[in-house]
Design a protein around this nucleic acid. Sequence first.
RNA 1: GGGGCCGUAGCUCAACUGGUUAGAGCAUCGGACUGUCGAUCCGAAGGUUGAGGGUUCGAGUCCCUUCGGCCUCGCCA
Length: 605
Amino acid sequence: MLKRTHNCGQLRIEDVDKKIVLAGWVKSYRDHGGLVFIDLRDREGITQLVFNPETQPKAHELARTARDEWVIAAEGTVKPRGEGLENPKLLTGQIEIVVSELEVLNVSKTPPFEMENAEKTNEEIRLTSRYIDLRRPQMQQKMKVRHQVTKIVRDYFDKLGFWEIETPMLAKSTPEGARDFLVPSRLVKNAFYALPQSPQLFKQILMVSGVDKYFQIVRCFRDEDPRADRQAEFTQIDVEASFVDCDDIITVHEKMIAEIWKKILNVDISVPIRRMTYKDAINDYGIDRPDLRFDMKLKDISDIAADSDFKVFASIVKKGGIVKGLCATGGGDKYSRSDIEKTMTAFVADYGAKGLAWLKVKAEDGKIILASSIAKFFKPEQLEEIAKRFDAKDGDLLLFVADIPSTVNKALAPLRCRLGRELNLYEEGVFEFVWVVDFPLFEWNENEKRYDSLHHPFTSPTIEDTEKLDTDPANINSQAYDLVVNGSEVGGGSIRIHNSKIQRKVFKILNISDEQATQQFGFFLKALEYGAPPHGGIAFGLDRLIMLLTGTENIRDVIAFPKTQRGQCLMSNAPSLVDPKQLEELNLRTQKHSHQIEKKNGDKK
RNA sequence: GGGGCCGUAGCUCAACUGGUUAGAGCAUCGGACUGUCGAUCCGAAGGUUGAGGGUUCGAGUCCCUUCGGCCUCGCCA
């Protein structure tokens, strides 16, 4: 077998006359009857091979039979291309290999899709033949960035004295949070492991163990429906450190992010990254992960609305609701009445808004006029006040939602992002980072009539708010922080509770009884009683970081072997039925899908 | 669990209102061609229109069921 001496992206004009061997995949062949050209590809690049029938008839004959994606090795001499024959599209475009010997290492069936047009090809086919898809330079680039980022992260933490320690994949099921993936135990009948949703408790226990500084690039599992930016199986950069406060964690990790952006994209992120309180984020952007690439802040006009003759607004405010809106720069010119009343109204309706009120902004004789069917319900000075509050300009569009605060914010936040994108209010390739801080510790859950953790139950209240655990849980701030970029949460963490009494108190507020707490977290609470140091940490979504760095909106693009929305691997066909023997060993029995059973019962009736 | 979009040749798409033998480009196969680089030219082959059922004289097109993919609401401590 010919052994390669160089890769396909390596040779330059300086290498002329070298005798070399390349190996790779046939990207394309051009048979001129006489000369044959083959573009040879490996992960490093493409090099053109030339086969001349007069000088090397044997290699030429063989080259004529080669087809796309065959694996070949070619020995030859590096030659400069003639005048005007260079290919500026290739890094190796100034040279070509005049081949003396060709070896076919393997043939290939015709690929199931054209690799040149893969970006347009049905993703289902790409996933089914993932090995072909991953062969494409675009996909290899993403895998390479992913490798580079994990390498940077490991080096970064190593230098700071963090240890990478593995935690169990077969773990204990915990009640709250996402649905667990379960793994039946063979040795303990009827018992199950859960795949970890995150190594949260283990990393905290490592702090009790005196590890001091821990990190791990770790797979996590949450059995919830996937989305464009979410897979059931994903990877976190998981970190925990002892004797630290919020600023310590934030400082270390914004430097890590800055280093990644610098090394991968050569983009400077100014450190320290700005911070914003949770309250400001909700007030101004309606969401705890604001997209700061453009302004368009939400404004509350409840006071004006309450005084207006517009009954919908006034009555909602009277009932304790609010009216908030935004000013879409240039939206008045861009959007028709039908765009607003059909498309946009349907859009906000998806998020629970019952309507979308609007005012178009026009300038007449230097005066700002607000026009729409609801304008007549407002006094001129009220309209003036509204225009002033939004700093509305000619050609803008004001949009309002009235409801309880959570519904208003939930509807306006995505509308704002959509408008920002449609109105081109920011440039592609810009990154706006922000730390969101001062989260409340708890959030009232109206359906369950109890408090939920906003972050997770192990998050510490601020020192000054700790005493409110007994008196005023609703108004406790936590020591949590989220890193947000372009409206996407890429990381989040907190200083943890290291006192078992406080931890029990928090469980109690979350309506977790002592018995439950002992049964589910007993091992952890016990660990806290044996000299747990103050500690805190953070976790980053590696997949989302890679998405940002590679400019894709599809998480499947940054995962080598991703799953579909039904959690299936189209290449390997997992999940699949198993041998009844396997089930027997696990003491398990399957039953028909309960819906089918219900349906059958229904038919009988 | 809900909503939306989609499924026609290997791939990307077309086929007016239900009406002849379902077309095109690329890929494939055969042929021609000594400087191409998305080579070019000539020719050929390629289809259970995702599957099943229904309406109709007639279904890619309409209706029902079902399978699959994507987006999304819920969900994701």
